[in-house]
Each structure stands twice: as C-alpha cells, then as structure tokens.
Design a protein around this nucleic acid. Structure first.
Length: 882
RNA sequence: GGGCGGGUAGCUCAGCGGGAGAGCAUCGGCCUUACAAGCCGGGGGUCACGGGUUCAAAUCCCGUUCCGCCUACCA
C-alpha cells in the first residue's frame, strides 16, 4: 500500500470491496473451535433465503458486527455463525410463480421435480442476501455458512421430531387450525395477522321446529350457518330459560338443530344466542366437543362451499355470504344488520383472509417445554435486554398454546411419519421403516406434510454447531454469548429456541438476548411495501457508503426506542466520515518522515498529556457501553471525542509543534500523533470498519489488519487528571477571546492584544507556560498579566470565576454593545444564582443533602458571585466612560 | 379488553433523583496551507397537563390527555 497523500474527500466506493476481500482472503473472520482464548459466539438470525436486504437486516447485522469486531479486538475467539433459512411458504410461492409463467403448476410436474426446481432456484438466487450482508461489512465466518435444509440440519430436525414424538410432546390430531386458502396450508396462530375491519353483525332468525316464533342469533359470518349444529344460550339467561331441549330449524336447509346451554355465551352480546359451527370456529369447536355435537365442514381448502352446503355448493365463501343474505332477506329471516368492527385474521405471507378449518395436523405440546424456558429467564440464565421485553416473553410463555407444526406444502422438512396402508398404524422414525411394525405389511406411505420453517429455526443455535453429533464447536460455542434480534420474532423464534435448546442441549441457547429497535421512516411509520415508504439499504449504501450508514444506525440505536431514519441524519454522519478522513489526511501528511512511535513523558506537551488522558477515558467508556449494548452512547462518545476534542482542539494545538523549527519537538509530536491516530482508528473500527482499515493501512508503522489490532484501554495511554483541568482553563481563555471577537465583530485576521487578570499563582503559571496555545488558537499577538486591577480602557472583557480576560480593542469597541453584552451576562447569572442561594438558605438542604452535593453548590455559588462582581464592576466602568 | 413505549430546543432524539444536552436546522462572521461534507461565535426549552413523595423531580408515585405499537377465541 502506497502511503501517499489522501484524496481530499473520502470515497467509500473505492475502498469497501477491496478490504472486504482482503479480510476474507486472510481468514480474519474465522473462528477456531479449538482455541485457548475465551469464546464469544453469536448465531445470526438467519435471513429468509428469498429475502433481500432491508433496514431490519441492516441494523441487526450492524449491531452484531460491532460486537463481533469489538470482541475480536479484545482478544476473544469469536464465532459469528451465518446462514439462511429455507422459508417454506415464501420460497415455494416464488417458485410456483415461475411455474405459472411457464403455464404449468407443481401438481403437474410432481413433488420430486418441484423440489429439484426449488433447489435450483436456491442455488441461483439464494446467495443474494448473503452478498448484501457482506456489503454491510459483516464479519461472519462464511466457511461455516449453514442452510436449514442442509443435510446436517435436516438430521437435527428428524432427531428432534422423533425425540419429541417419543416423549409424547408431539401429537397428531383433529383441530381447528388457521387455513390459508391461497397458500393451501395450515398456519400457526402467530402466523395470523389480525386487522381491525369494518364489517357487519347480522341478526338471523332461526324458527322453532315445533312451535311458532324464532330464536335470533347474531353473527358476522352468515355463510357458516350451513355448518351449524346447535344454537347456544347462557344457562343463566332468563330470556331463554325454557328453550333447553327444544330444536330450531336451520334457515335455508330447514334442518333441526338443538338449543344447548353453555356458560361461554355472553348474555350481553348480540341477542345472547350464539350459533355453533364446530368445524369452522375455534370456540364453537370447543363447545361442540363439550356437548358432543356433530362437526360439519361446509367450506373446503380453496375457500369454496362444498357438497354439504346444499344450493350454495361451489360458491366462493364471500359470494356465498351475499347469496345467503339475499335468501334470508327474501324469506324474512334476516332481522337486521348492524355495522360492527372486529379483528379479522390474515395470512402473514400473502394477506389472504384466514379460514378456520377443522383439519388433521401435527402439534407440539408447548406448555411442558415452556416451563424450563420461563425458569431460565426468571433465574437469569438468559437475560433479555432491555428487560421490559421479559414481561412480554413471560406473558406469551405463560399462555402458550400448542404449536401447529405441519404445513401442507412441499418445500421443507418432510415429517418423518409413515402410515401403514393396510392397518393404519402410524410410525415415526429417523429412518424410513421397511415394514409395518404392527402388521408387517410393506405398503407404507410417508406423511406428505412438511414442518413449519420455524421448527428448524428453533434448533439453529445447536444444529448449526453440529448437533446431534458431539462436536468441538458445541463444546466451545454453546451456549452462545448473545442473540441480537428484533422483537417481531420474539415469539416466532427466540421463545422456541429457548424451549428447544433447554430440552435437547440441557442449557439455554444464549446468555443474553438483545432486542433492538424497529427502523421506521422519517414520519415514524413502519416501512412497508404497501405504504411505499421503504428506504432501500442498498441505495443508502450506494449514496452514503457503508460506514456512514452503519454509524448512523449505531448512533440512533437507543435501547427501547425505534429508529427514525432520515437522509439528513445520514448526510450528517457521512460528514463525520469525511472529518475522520481529513483528520487522517492531515496526520499522515505530517507523519511521512516519522520514526516509530514511543512515548517519552519528558517531551509530552500539555496538549499531548491532556488528549491521551481523554482518549484513555473515552476508550473505557466506549467499551462499557458496547458491552452494555448501548450502541448509541458508544457511537456518540466516539463522535464527540473525535470531532470536538481530537480535531477541534488537539490537532489545532499540535500544529505548533509540527510547524516548529525544533526537530525534537517535531518528532515528539509525530510520535504522539501516531499513537493517537492509531487509537482513534481502533476505537472506531467496530463501527466503521472500512474507512478505519483504509487509513490504518496507509499509516506508517502499522502491521497487518486493524481487525487484529487491540482495542484501546485507558492503561495504554498516559493518564493525568491534572492535565485535563489545566487544559480546561486554557480552553476557557481561548473560548473567551473568540467569543468577544465573534460578538464584537472583530475581523478574524486582526490579531488582538489581551490582558489576563488572574490572582491565583497556579493559574497564572499554567497560562504563562502555555501561552502559545492561546496566541495561536485565539489569534492573539500579546498577553499581559495583571492581578486584581481595573479593567483597561478600550477593552471588552470575558469573565469566568475570578479570572478576567480583557481584549484590547482600541478603535474597534462599541461601548453600547459591550454594555449590552455585560448586562446580558449579569441577568443570566443572577437567575442561576437565585437557585443556588435558595438551596443554601434552606437548612434542610444543608443538613440532609450529601456533603459533596452541598459543597458543589457552595463552590458554584462562590464562582458565580465572583463573576457577578466582576461583571458589575466592568459595567460601572463603562457607565463612567459613556 | 389486556399490555408496552412515548410526549424535553423549529425537527429528530439522548438524559431518567442533585448545574437542561446532542445532531440537524437557524442567525452572525470566516476560502485560517486536514476538511466549505469545513472553521469560529450566537440565539433558542414553565422537560404534555394536574396532583403527590423528597432537603431536592425532566428524572420516582398517582391521575388526566394525546400519539404509536404489541396482544386477545364476545359471536
């Protein structure tokens, strides 16, 4: 790498690809399953293989990468385990769409060939999201990339399924499930999205069978009445007391169905009479079971009315509703229609309205598994951060329902169950059985359903590490250190990993779960395709560069708060990258001929000691913030320190040394600068890997990649608290002069004479010894020192505590302006003093507040009082002049 | 229905018991040989409202209100 002068602005495009390749080629992302170093491991939340990078991924992976890079620099053996999941329904949908274009469908080509096509698709497009993660700089160990349909992971799935079945934790049964008529599969409860919808409540008369009159029920789904097998009323409902044992006639079909009594029915709602359709509603199903009612399925898997729905057979469910309402109206059975708002379930994949259907499915008995998962968080074996998500987790776990895991699609792990065609025996086994265990028949058929994708995702923390084999990876990296993810998959994924990990590994899958924010748009709206407010991370990467993007996400990632991303913010942090770049540019220009760095405390200037004390303190703060998942604080500390301390003050001060004729001073400055630049880059590296590597490689006396360098600690630098106080004093004087220059409109080029009135010998010494900082940074041509003397004529004065800086302004001073300025200062300080004095006048405060607090207030009051005196004196003098 | 988060400078947000902060925007002055994606300086806030606890409240508690979000088998 040539170490020439850097370009004037940072150009990320030229840099990023180059270094990513370098890191990969030099195996810098690789974990070691047999290492003496302490392990640190993260499994990636596997992105959907059909996916393309969205903001959620960008944030999620940026945060993981910060942790991974930071821990590597701290000397850990880091494994960041990457991979993708096979996304059963989504992937099948994509390939099926292709087939439609080719004027065929999966049923025509058959299961085997279809699966082959999906694999082909995955080979061709499955790497897209992976490459996008690489563009983000993600330092995953790609040599270990896994896919949930890999042979190894599929083995883990079979092992788990059979294990749970044998323990009676998986069972098969007829239940009401959520059916998507478009995807043609069952869905788990959490895969259904509820949406408040304006609909209607229809009041329908069910005539009595053997007497006059009718019983009116209220329903939102009149079409399901074809499958009604009873009408229920509350046993305590006075109105319907005498109806028990009677029958009513189902409208349209004129079929008698019984009136039953059930406490479930709410007397207050509708008419207090509830129609019962056990095959199409979960509650009705349960009531039906309790009363031994027949289950009549009238809607089929396509959402169409079937042969049991009489005249409506063949109609779509919505079409049927219209028709049936017409017919009811005509026969006078429709009493009234009321507008009604209710939540309607939709498929989370395709948004089709869910049809609750009676169907035979496979379920995981969740409650027993949840117990340990609850305990693990209660006892702190796994921490959820921020902790308020614990409550959400507990709430769900405590009310957990059995998990429907079978899906009527082809792409996925086929359930390892076989049915004997002769005797009906069900066999669940890891290997395909040859003959029926009961009747010895060889006429066996495998279950056609596959497992929910989340079933395999639930095993991710150990299946990716080689389970069920006992591998070095498992020994070294399980339990993983932390899981970083969004709350939207807390139930889908985190909770289930907890259950499976505890059950099969006997330990939690991760020590920490860090739940991060959602990325929203500028208006705080959730980004969605339908709203069209999506900010494409790839576009952001192109226009601002990866590092700016990552830094923006980090600094906005406050715990428990969503991120509103905006172009202005991105531009602001792109400017920060440019600032870093130019600080490096300046440094490198002056480091061309430098020796290898060493700290000689004798040659350190006050500026050196001060900035080293600061960078050391800052390094420790950044460390503790990263370790506490306070990414925004860590990033903000970097920003403030680098821009407003290192660049604004140190680099300006070091110019004195660099431009000095004294070769020794120059060399000492070069040494310090190298140490500092190296420190700054290493602090920044976890956040902004590319720009830091680029500069690192151009620095003299650096070896290898910055990835392998050590993260700075306070003890790496000179630390001297006194220097911080001294520098504060000098900065205050400089700021004071600048302030007056600015407010009095003194041309920046015009050098000023100043007189500092300082009583304390110590302060005077400090200012005298470091006067060149003041003369250079405040454009001052001479400094005189006085002690407790009257304000010089033709001067403007900056007052702090008992120190006064008089800027001599012969001919430039406007006395009215100066008076106004002083007056403003007096008003401000009087207001502040009032607060302090009130406190000090309060006996309870003096007695009960901690002594250090009282002392602080006292000192503050004293300082202010001195300042106020000086200001008043100055005002009096000016009054005398004008 | 239940739960969670939020209301702090014009905007976006930190802070969450002892001096109201940042970024952006704004105003004034600067092409000072690292950076105009920059430098220097300034202005700007009854910390939603009402009570309470405390020597001390933006910060803790209660209530009100307005926004989000999650969850739920009253048809």
């Amino acid at each position: 790498m040539e170490k020439d002068v850097l370009a004037k602005t940072y150009n990320p495009k030229e840099v990023e690809g180059r270094w990513y390749k370098y890191w990969e080629e030099n195996d810098l992302f690789k974990a070691n399953a047999r290492s003496d170093k302490s392990p640190f491991s993260i499994v990636i939340p596997p992105p959907n293989v059909t996916g393309s990078l969205h903001m959620g991924h960008a944030l999620n992976n940026t945060l993981q990468d910060i942790l991974a890079r930071y821990k590597r620099m701290k000397g850990y053996n880091v494994l960041w385990q990457p991979g993708t999941d096979h996304a059963g329904i989504a992937t099948q949908n994509v390939v099926e769409k292709d087939l439609i274009l080719k004027k065929t469908d999966r049923h025509q080509i058959g299961r085997e060939q279809f699966i082959e096509l999906v694999w082909e698709w995955r080979k061709k497009y499955g790497g897209i999201i992976i490459n996008q993660l690489k563009r983000l700089g993600s330092s995953c160990d790609w040599s270990r990339e896994r896919f949930t349909m890999d042979e190894g992971l599929s083995r883990a799935v079979r092992e788990v399924f059979v294990g749970l079945y044998e323990e009676n934790l998986i069972y098969q049964g007829d239940y009401i499930i959520n059916w998507c008529p478009r995807c043609h599969t069952a869905l788990a409860d959490i895969e259904v999205e509820h949406e408040d919808t304006d609909s209607f409540l229809y009041y329908i008369r069910y005539p009595f069978e053997n007497q006059k009159g009718s019983l009116t029920v209220a329903t939102t789904r009149p079409e399901t009445l074809l499958g009604d097998t009873a009408v229920a009323v509350n046993p305590e409902d006075e109105r319907y007391k005498n109806l028990s044992g009677l029958h009513v006639l189902l409208p349209v079909l004129n079929k008698p169905i019984p009136v039953i009594l059930d406490k479930y029915v709410d007397k207050e709602f509708g008419t207090g009479a509830l129609k019962i359709t056990p095959a199409h509603d979960l509650n009705d199903f349960e009531i039906g079971n309790a009363h031994g009612l027949e289950r009549i399925k009238v809607i089929d898997e396509n959402g169409r009315m079937n042969e049991l729905s009489g005249p409506y057979q063949g109609m779509d469910r919505f079409e049927c509703r219209e028709k049936i309402l017409d017919d009811l109206k005509n026969s006078g059975l429709l009493e009234k229609i009321e507008p009604y708002r209710n939540a309607i379930g939709h498929c989370y994949r395709c948004k089709t309205m869910i049809e609750p259907l009676l169907s035979k499915q496979w379920f995981v008995r969740a409650a027993p598994l949840a117990e340990k998962a609850i305990a693990a968080v209660k006892t702190g074996k796994t921490r959820i951060i921020p902790a308020n998500w614990e409550r959400v987790y507990f709430d769900w776990m405590n009310n957990i329902k059995d998990w429907c895991i079978s899906r009527q699609i082809w792409w996925g792990h086929r359930i390892p169950a076989w049915y004997c065609q002769e005797c009906g025996e069900v066999m669940v086994a890891k290997e395909e059985p040859k003959i029926c265990t009961r009747c010895k028949s060889n006429n066996l058929h495998q279950e056609t359903d596959v497992l929910d994708t989340w079933f395999s995702s639930a095993l991710w923390p150990f299946s990716t590490l080689g389970w069920p084999d006992s591998t070095d990876e498992l020994k070294t990296f399980y339990p993983t250190s932390v899981l970083v993810t969004g709350f939207d998959i807390l139930f889908f994924w985190v909770a289930r990993m907890m259950m499976m990990g505890l059950h099969f590994m006997g330990d939690v899958p991760f020590r920490d779960v860090y739940i991060h924010a959602l990325v929203k748009d500028e208006q705080g709206q959730k980004m969605s395709k339908s709203k069209g407010n999506i900010i494409d991370p790839l576009v952001v990467l192109d226009s601002f560069g990866t590092d700016s993007f990552r830094f923006t996400l980090s600094i906005l990632a406050a715990q428990g708060r969503d991120i509103r991303l905006s172009e202005e913010r991105l531009a602001g942090y792109r400017n920060f990258m440019n600032k870093i770049w130019n600080a490096a540019r300046f440094s490198l220009m002056n480091l061309k001929d430098c020796k290898s760095p060493s700290i000689d405390t004798d040659t350190l200037t006050l500026a050196d000691t001060w900035i080293m004390s600061r960078i050391g303190a800052v390094a420790d703060e950044i460390s503790s913030n990263i370790e506490g998942y306070k990414f925004n604080d860590a990033a903000n500390i970097c920003y403030q320190f680098i821009w407003h301390e290192f660049c604004d003050w140190y680099l300006e001060m070091v110019k004195l040394e660099l431009y000095s004729n004294d070769q020794k001073r120059r060399e000492a400055a070069q040494s310090a600068m190298q140490i500092l630049l190296s420190g700054v880059l290493r602090l920044l590296h976890p956040f902004v890997p590319f720009i830091t590597e680029e500069i690192w490689q151009r620095m003299p006396h650096t070896e290898g990649s910055i990835m392998a360098a050590q993260f700075p600690r306070r003890t790496d630098f000179v630390y001297d608290e006194k220097s911080v106080k001294e520098m504060d004093l000098i900065k205050e004087v400089i700021t004071g002069v600048r302030n007056i220059r600015g407010e009095m409109n003194i041309p920046p080029k015009k050098a000023a004479k100043i007189v500092i009135d300082v009583k304390g010998d110590k302060e005077r010494e400090i200012l005298k010894n470091n006067h060149s900082y003041i003369t250079n940074l405040a454009k001052v041509e001479s400094i005189d020192f006085i002690s407790d003397t009257k304000k010089p004529d033709s001067s403007a004065t900056y007052v702090f505590s008992d120190i006064q800086v008089h800027v001599l302004l012969k001919g430039l001073i406007n006395y009215d302006d100066e008076k106004k300025r002083i007056y403003k200062g007096i008003k401000k300080i009087e207001k502040e003093m009032e607060i302090s004095q009130k406190k000090l006048a309060n006996r309870d405060f003096l007695n009960q507040a901690p002594p250090d607090i009282v002392e602080n207030v006292k000192q503050k009051a004293q300082r202010m009082s001195m300042k106020l005196d000086k200001l008043n004196q100055n005002l009096t003098i000016l009054d005398g002049i004008t």
